[in-house]
Design a protein around this nucleic acid. Structure first.
Lengths: 335, 335
DNA sequence: ATGAAAGCGCTAACAT
DNA sequence: ATGTTAGCGCTTTCAT
């Protein structure tokens, strides 16, 4: 029984008013007379009318949705951020489109496509590896960076990475560690740079030695943490503590170390970054730097919404604070 | 420099043809003369024209996107499925809208809304708690269930839960376990029922006792696994093995047990369900039942696409096989 | 092979 | 307070 869905015309006819009145009743109820309003609402009910979003969007010259560009959808780190974004957009009657930048051949190309496609009223960029030059598109919608980004002055929401790293190193030093290693993120990533720079700065500030052998190349994944552990195991002079640029790498490192019979934290202390949910359930529970992911999503969406409503391509930037969560993966070292 | 983006009219003018020809050139290039086609393509290039998806969709009476309804976006379990869905939809030129069913007040209401909204050409349901009656909507788009669902004959993609559970119990029995407990998912969930029923059937089939005390109520979360562990610790007669309806609960259970000084698997064996990435990095690595998540997403999207293209509300159902992954969290018990 | 023209369903001036 | 009307940008008959 395929019955064509009712249009605004059907409602207007049923209520004995014009389509304009129906439209008004639905968008600005206060401007129509009470009796009319009730008639229209009754007709809406009777006909089962639903606004056709496509037509409405076309007429209003908007897309009705926001796109979140995520480096890798399969990475659970982003799911909570998405949830935060979603909650804000839903209230604002905007859809949330998600797209994976790294899944196709050319990530920059994906971004360029979405900027021109008119499919979105705004973009939230969660991928710090994209090329900034791509943003130079005439008539593009507002874009909010919800990640570190090469010295750009685009509106952005950043996390205070340097401070997070500094707290971690300070804690390790206070616990007596002098030999501290670092597992980095992937090369091209801005987060990698921010955390690595923070690491170097924090170490220098405390007059600590930086060993090249103690910097392990990772890519944020558990597997790369595991690989780093193997490297660490092969070292003659091992750092007594390792600061990982992501919790996932910390999990991989810890698992591999434990499987090799190394005790954590007795034989090696570990600190992660992110505070993904599971690390509190590990044995030992991981000491890490917490990023408030839901809040990041919420603020990012709110900031973008502000730009959309203002019709502006620029807007303020913000920084979100991190929190140092001390659990059980760092041991005190005898001085 | 805000320059209005070019419309099909601009292209037509620049190429000296009608808008119809431009439209044809772009959608069915084979029906226009070669010379015309080249002129049009040149004009597209020159004007920087991009198809306005909203207008196109309105005219073609479609939405241009698919909605994935997810119980909880913050749950990383779904991110990989989304990635699979996204990869298929992108190729088909369809957007992926995601919505959280459990975030609002009334999940069924959300579903009902999307069914009527016309915002999507199809829906993929990943939430097994929704009320089937809600689907009875005239003129709704095709829906694919990518989860267990009350005895419905809607097109669906299911995972062979019963078989997965049976393999798990068979393994435990073979390893000498006779006292086996189970941590369930949330009450209303169909997955919970499927796995619990599978558990009961597998136990009965092997003539094993079912203790009420050994069934722990969970909700798939790590915290509920932790709570189950505390309950387990308080038991006089403890099961020697616990089958968890989700990996997350297994993680929570294992962490809490270990923190209480219980050795895994020596003192208690644990099996999970899902094979989320991290469980291979735990100590001990978790034995579990693998669900191919990316593949689930891919197949679900492909099946839905089939229905959309056929303009059908019904279609075939499929079952995806699971795989039993033996790692280190089950010990052999002396008979 | 191409063009003319009629809308898809809606909203927002503008007029009353 | 309400109605009239003119499109938003596109696709698709139906002619030619």
């Amino acid at each position: 029984m395929k019955q064509r869905t009712a249009t605004i015309q059907d409602v207007a006819r049923a209520a004995g008013v014009s389509t304009a009145t129906v439209s008004r009743t639905l968008s600005k109820p206060s401007v129509v007379a009470r009796a009319t309003r009730e008639a229209v609402l009754g007709a809406v009910e009777a006909t089962g009318y639903r606004l056709n979003a496509t037509a409405s969007n076309l007429r209003r010259q908007r897309a009705g949705s926001v796109i979140a560009l995520i480096p890798n959808l399969a990475n659970p780190f982003f799911s909570q951020i998405l949830a935060g974004i979603s909650s804000v957009l839903t209230k604002a009657q905007l859809g949330l489109l998600v797209a994976d930048t790294q899944s196709g051949p050319d990530p920059d190309e994906r971004l360029a496509y979405y900027l021109r496609s008119g499919q979105a009223d705004g973009l939230i960029l969660l991928d710090g590896t994209l090329n900034e030059a791509v943003l130079d598109v005439a008539g593009r919608p507002p874009v909010l960076m919800a990640c570190e980004w090469m010295g750009s002055d685009l509106p952005s929401l950043r996390v205070d990475n340097a401070r997070g790293v500094d707290m971690a190193i300070a804690h390790l030093v206070q616990m007596g560690h002098r030999k501290i290693g670092h597992i980095t993120g992937p090369q091209s990533n801005v987060l990698t740079k921010a955390r690595h720079d923070g690491f170097v700065a924090a170490m220098m500030a405390r007059g600590m030695a930086l060993h090249e052998d103690w910097i392990f190349d990772g890519d944020f994944s558990m597997d790369s943490g595991r690989a780093a552990a193997r490297q660490w195991l092969g070292l003659d002079d091992r750092p007594t503590a390792v600061f990982c640029a992501s919790d996932e790498m910390a999990v991989g490192f810890m698992g591999a170390a434990q499987h090799a019979g190394v005790r954590v934290p007795d034989d090696v202390s570990i600190i992660g970054f992110d505070n993904i949910e599971m690390v509190g359930h590990l044995t030992p529970a991981l000491t890490t730097i917490r990023q408030p992911r839901t809040e990041i999503g919420v603020r990012a969406a709110e900031m973008l919404l502000g730009m959309i409503e203002a019709g502006a391509l620029t807007g303020p930037s913000e920084q979100i604070d991190v929190e140092f969560v001390i659990r059980e993966s760092v041991a005190r070292i005898a001085e």
